[in-house]
Amino acid sequence: MCAKGYLSKNISYLPQDNFIPDQINLSAAIDIFCKKNRDQLMQIKFVSDNLDAKFYNLSGGEARYLECLLMIYSDHEYVLLDEPFSQLSPLWVEDLKTHINHAKIAKGFIITDHYYRSILDVSDRIVLLHNRCNYTINNEDDLILHGYLPGYTA
């Protein structure tokens, strides 16, 4: 058992900010993080079209989208995604949801985000952290009930 989770090399973590250095190109990043799942990533058109692109040549949204994909298809068994749906266009959000639903068959995901509708679409178990408490969430009405969304009247 490792004192720090990342030393186990079993956890991928997508932080809120961009984490892949600008001078690396997408192909090198895939070689580093997704050796086993390279073929699945290559089937995504945006990935195969931008293999030689360095991260400084990509827009913030493009870099974020690619970082999300790299973590979703990373070689590790568990993936922690911190606000993966932020900074993305609606089309890419839908696309990411498809990839998460596809990849979650083989690995565990922990996702934190304020885009609750996207979370509801991809999650098997939802926990609301609010007012220093944990609440189990089954649908949107539970979010209103626990005061995360407006609309609750006692």
Binding site: K4, Y6, L7, S12, Y13, D17, F19, I20, P21, F33
Partner: peptide
């Protein structure tokens, strides 16, 4: 700060 998670995701401290 900008590169720590790049290495941590590879299990490098």
């Amino acid at each position: 700060k900008s590169t720590s998670y790049f290495f941590k995701n590879q299990g490098i401290s």
